[in-house]
Nucleic acid binder design. Structure first.
Lengths: 246, 246
DNA sequence: GAAAAAACTTGATCCAGATCAAGATTAAAA
DNA sequence: TTTTAATCTTGATCTGGATCAAGTTTTTTC
């Protein structure tokens, strides 16, 4: 692990409150690994031996069942993932693959578990992190059950715009194919939906999103604090396509 | 709060490992309340001032958006709910209403937060509980995104059968109307789907489920450990219709 | 126990979104 | 660059599940 990487990790909510010594100890048992693009580094069902941290690149969390597959989240630096499984010492519920060349830190789950038993500051951080992640997934489930696909698309685009500082124009952070799967629809249907939204204040130019009439788009998306956030605690994000580091 | 109730609460994973004194302290600041049937005791968006525990009766967690509404979980004694919101000191993401006359214990969130900062045994329990809940919701999201409604119904029925000790026949623990909403479908469609499953090893008699050909039904449901459980740790359940106490 | 109000079922119809099938773009590889 | 392989778009069609509309059964209330 490179020395300049430590502060980046330390800066995460999960680690910023623990003692220096304990942080060092945890990092000492961890190691970095570089993965090429498109590598399935975690297979659902495998034992969760490591907590993962993306340092560079990006990672897709996805789930498989039968022959089907769907995107559950995309993670970008710097964020942790697969925390709950590491803690429960249980099998991964999701698989993970790199979307590009990606650098990952691996923290042995057993060290992690030992650490929060020892460091009560850290255990509080773990609690907060897990609670945030939980709320993220609940939000996600709400969107899936309460909104139709057009509403999911519109609210996603508005949320992204907020994350881009309220900018009326920005570039999609992921391929449309992937976004479609994340939003629970087919790529074809996303394409059509984006086109249809041109009557409602949206313009697409390739991967560029241009919000031409925010009021109109909002009327359709009906963004809701209890689904789309933001969560008060600035940039937690738990796990959502909502890109951004946490 | 009645004295005979304390052991029931103490028995929950969340509380069984903390010191006697701390448990007593937490209970001292808590109080019980009885709600009539059909009362909306929690409204999404309200500040999460209390951790709730169902002692008697049953509670539906549901979400609203726009005019729509959907069931997210049903809780039965003895289980806690709305833990993550209490911890984050954040607004409830879901509403809750009683399905019958229900007795609830309310633990002030601030006391809860103070306690896990003080009692490290307790903080470990909170971590485990949250991690379990998280995994439950992820499972739920997987079912919603990967299975169609017939598959969700079939796998739900098989899961319930397992919870009933593998019995080939049991009574649905909730109204069909509610089950339908939980499974992300309309009541009409659930009705038709149950009927259609008669070709696949299922027989309904009112609220009674009779699995006439488990192999056939399983072939259709393709039950999966990573979606349908069980989670190793015996009866966690986080939040799912899967009834059962935790 | 009768009346009223739910929950449930069944049928007819409709529609959002999936699937199938080509093209059109864009990106990656040679 | 040229070639090759993705992703993305668009159109045509199909279908799972929603919606609408009665009935029927069960539960609740008086």
């Amino acid at each position: 692990m490179r020395p300049e990487e430590l502060p980046e990790i330390r800066h995460l909510h999960l680690f910023r409150d623990m003692s220096h010594a304990n942080f060092e100890a945890l990092m000492a048992s961890s190691y970095a690994q570089n993965f090429p693009q498109g590598l399935e580094m975690i297979r659902q069902g495998d034992p969760a031996d490591f907590l993962h941290i993306v340092l560079e690149g990006s990672v897709e969390l996805f789930a498989r069942w039968g022959g089907r597959e769907c995107t559950m989240a995309v993670l970008r630096p710097v964020s942790t993932f697969i925390l709950a499984a590491s803690i429960r010492d249980a099998p991964y519920l999701m698989s993970a693959r790199t979307l590009e060349r990606t650098r990952i830190i691996l923290i042995p789950s057993s060290d992690l578990r030992a650490m929060f038993r020892r460091d009560s500051e850290f255990s509080v951080s773990v609690i907060n992190e897990l609670a945030s992640c939980y709320r993220s997934v609940v939000r996600n489930a709400k969107t899936l059950k309460l909104r139709n696909s057009r509403e999911r698309v519109a609210s996603y685009l508005l949320r992204q715009s907020l994350l881009a500082g309220g900018a009326p124009s920005y570039v999609l952070p992921v391929e449309k194919r992937l976004l479609a799967s994340y939003l629970g629809m087919t790529a074809e249907n996303l394409s059509r939906t984006l086109r249809a939204l041109e009557d409602d204040g949206l313009k697409m130019d390739g991967a560029r999103v241009i919000i031409t009439d925010r009021a109109k788009l909002s009327a359709l998306a009906q963004p809701d604090k209890l689904i789309d956030g933001p969560e008060m605690d600035s940039n937690e994000n738990g796990s959502g396509l909502p890109i951004s580091s946490r």
